[in-house]
Nucleic acid binder design. Structure first.
Lengths: 347, 347
DNA sequence: ATTCTTTATGCAAACGTTTGCAGATCCGGA
DNA sequence: TCCGGATCTGCAAACGTTTGCATAAAGAAT
C-alpha cells in the first residue's frame, strides 16, 4: 500500500539507535547535542520524509504557533488589506493565521472567540463587529494570559492592546479640506455610533466646523450601516430638497462611491456642484470618474503594528501589567478630483 | 492569582467523582452514557469554564478540524471572494481555515505545503502560483491520503480533484461578443502560459475568431504577468501605430481597467473607437466609466464546490481511487458599456 | 435463585512531542 | 592511576484527549 504511515521521531531514533530525546533535541538544535549527531539525525529525518507533528509539540508546549484573526468580512477592502500584511508578516515569524469572519454578527463573534480559544491559539487579533460594545466575551483570553490585540474597530473602555487609525484627525482633516475648497454646507454620512471610530470621525467633523466658524446642524448628519442601499436612500434624502449641500464627507468609500454615482445619474456635477470626500483610500476611489478624495489609513503600517504587538506580548508575557498603551496610526488625506478646485474660482 | 490554570476533563471528573472516560463520552454525546450523567457533566463543564483542548483531541484522533488554503494573495478580488465563502462555509461544518499566501512565488508555495502538512490539516485547497507547472510538492498529501482540491489555477496533468471555471468558454464568449458588436481586429492580452487557464482562454479566443472567419494574428496577442505596469506598457505598444484594434479582450479586469484608463487619457473613445472586455467581473468594472463588460466566474459557486469537495473527500476517504472528476463551474458574460453598440450603427 | 441481557461506567493505553534530571563517556592534569 | 569536569545522551513523565475492552449494576426471563 502506498498509504505508508507517517514517520515520527521514534522511527528516526530506532533507525539510528539513538533515543527519542536526542533526536528531538537534535532537530531543535539544542546546544547539548554534538554536531555530528545533529547531522546524522537531520539526514535521516530527510531520508524518511519526517515531518514534525505540530499538534503533538503544541500539546506538550502548550503553544500552537498559530494566531487567530477575527474580522467582519474578508471581502471589505480595509480588513482585507490588513489581513494580507498580517498573514505575510506572521509567516516570517513562523506563525500560522486562522482567519474568521464575524459577518458583523455579535453572536458569531462570541462563538468564534470560544472556538479559537479551544484551538489554543497563541494570540488573537480582532476588528470588532459594528455592534460590539460589550467586550466581555474576550475575558477568557485575558484570564489565561493570551494576548489580544484590537485594531481599527476597537473597544473603548476595555483593557486591552489597541491599534487604531487617527480617526479624529481623519474626520477633522477631511472636513477642513472641504471647507478650504470652498464648501460651507457639509453633510456627514456616518456609521452606527456603537462603533467607536465613527464617533471620533464625527467629532473631528464637528471640530473642524467649529474651528472654521461654521454651524453644526444635526439634520446634516446621517447614521446607518454603510451598505450601498442605505447610502442610496440617504443620497435621495440629501438631494430631495434645495439647497443641496456643497460638500459630502462620507465615513466610508463605498458610501462615497455610491453618492458619486447618484450625483452623476442626477446630473449633479462633482466637484462643481458638490464635493465628496471618502474614507480608507479604497483603490476603487482612484479609478472612478471623477476620482474621489479619501483618507488613507496606512493599512500596511497598521498590519505590521498588529503583528509586532502580538509578537511582543507573546514573548514577554506581561502577566499582570495592565498598561496597554493605545497606538495611533497616522492618516493622510489623498486629494483627488472629487474635491478639486473651488466652484467660484474655476468659472 | 487571576492566572488560573486551564480546566481539563480530569478536573470535571474529579469534581464529579466520575472517570475521565465517562466525562469525555458525556461531552461528546456518546450513546452509552445516561442522560442524567450527561447533564451533570455538561453543567459542571460550564461551571468550571472548561474549554476542550483541540490539540490534545487532534493528537489522539489524528485530525485537526482545520483546512489549509493557499492562494496567490488575499488582496486580489477573485481569490478573496472565494476565500470569503470558503471560510464561511467551513465555519458551518466546524472547521477552521488556515490561510496562506504564496505571493505567486513557487518556493513559498512549496514551503507552505510542508508547514501545512506539519500542522496536520485535514484538507487543503489551492489556487496555484502562476509558475507552478510541477505539482509534485503536493505529493506528500497524496501519500498520506489527505484531500487536496485545486481551484481556479489548477494543474493539468496532476492527478487531483480540480474545480475550475469554464475558461475556454469564457474566452470564446468574450471574443464572440466583441465580434458580434462589430469588432474585426481584436487584441488579446493574456497571462503567462505556464498557467493553464490563460491557455484555455486563449484557445477560446482563437476558436471564436476562426468560427467567425477572422484571421488569428500572432502579434495581436500579448503575454505577461498581469500587473498595472505591464498592462500600461502593452497599451502603449497596442496604440503606438495605426490601425488601432477595434476590440481588446483582456484576460483580467485589472488589465482591462488599465487599458481603459490609458484610452481615456489618450482620447481614444471607449466603446466607439475600441471595445473592451475583461475577465472575472471584479466589482471595479462596474464603477468605472464607462463600465466594463466582463466574464463572471461565480466565485460563490466555486467556493461552495471547493468546500463540498473537501468535505466529501474527508468523509469517505477514497483511498486509492484515482478518479478525480474535474468540475467545471459555468461562466456568464456581463455586458456593460465598454462593449456597447456598434460604431457604425450608432452614428 | 440463577442465568442472560442490557445499560452504564471505569481502566489504561495510545497519540508524538519536549524536558528535568540522571547517567555515561571522554579528556587532561596531577 | 585516579579524579574533576565537560560534554553528550538516555530515561521517563507529562501534555489532554479518545477508545477498546473489561466490569459492574440492574433488570428480565427462566
Amino acid at each position: 500500500m502506498s498509504a505508508r504511515s507517517e514517520k515520527t521521531i521514534v522511527d528516526i531514533a530506532e533507525e539510528l539507535g539513538l533515543s527519542v530525546s536526542t533526536v528531538s533535541r537534535a532537530l531543535n538544535d539544542h546546544p547539548n547535542i554534538s554536531v555530528k549527531t545533529k547531522d546524522k539525525v537531520k539526514k535521516m529525518a530527510r531520508k524518511l520524509g519526517y515531518r514534525p507533528n505540530a499538534m503533538a509539540a503544541g500539546l506538550r508546549n502548550n503553544k500552537s504557533k498559530t494566531i487567530g484573526l477575527i474580522i467582519p468580512r474578508i471581502s471589505m477592502f480595509f480588513p482585507a488589506a490588513i489581513t494580507t500584511v498580517v498573514q505575510n508578516k506572521l509567516q516570517e515569524y513562523g506563525y500560522h493565521l486562522i482567519i474568521c469572519q464575524s459577518n458583523d454578527s455579535l453572536e458569531q463573534e462570541q462563538e468564534l472567540v470560544n472556538t479559537l480559544y479551544s484551538a489554543r491559539i497563541d494570540g488573537l487579533a480582532v476588528s470588532a463587529t459594528l455592534s460590539t460594545t460589550d467586550f466581555s466575551h474576550f475575558d477568557i483570553f485575558k484570564q489565561h494570559n493570551i494576548p489580544v490585540v484590537f485594531f481599527d474597530r476597537t473597544p473603548k473602555d476595555y483593557q486591552a492592546k489597541v491599534i487604531k487609525g487617527d480617526d479624529f484627525l481623519g474626520g477633522y482633516t477631511a472636513t477642513e479640506h472641504l471647507i478650504e475648497q470652498g464648501c460651507r454646507d457639509i453633510v456627514h454620512i456616518s456609521g452606527p455610533l456603537t462603533c467607536n471610530l465613527y464617533k471620533e470621525r464625527l467629532a473631528g467633523y464637528k471640530d473642524a466646523l467649529s474651528k472654521h466658524k461654521l454651524p453644526f446642524k444635526k439634520p446634516r448628519v446621517f447614521f446607518h450601516e454603510l451598505t450601498r442601499e442605505n447610502a442610496l436612500a440617504t443620497a435621495e434624502k440629501i438631494f430631495a430638497q434645495q439647497p443641496y449641500p456643497d460638500g459630502v464627507f462620507a465615513t466610508n468609500d463605498t458610501t462615497a462611491i455610491t453618492i458619486l454615482e447618484y450625483c452623476r445619474k442626477q446630473g449633479i456635477r462633482v466637484p462643481e456642484d458638490v464635493k465628496i470626500v471618502g474614507y480608507s483610500n479604497d483603490p476603487r476611489t482612484e479609478i472612478v470618474t471623477p476620482s474621489i478624495t479619501s483618507v488613507d489609513q496606512f493599512s500596511a503600517t497598521m498590519g505590521e503594528r498588529v503583528v509586532a504587538a502580538l509578537m511582543d506580548l507573546i514573548q514577554n508575557r506581561h502577566p499582570n501589567s495592565y498598561r496597554h498603551p493605545q497606538e495611533i496610526v497616522p492618516i493622510q488625506l489623498i486629494k483627488r478630483e472629487s474635491s478639486a478646485g473651488s466652484p467660484k474660482k474655476k468659472k
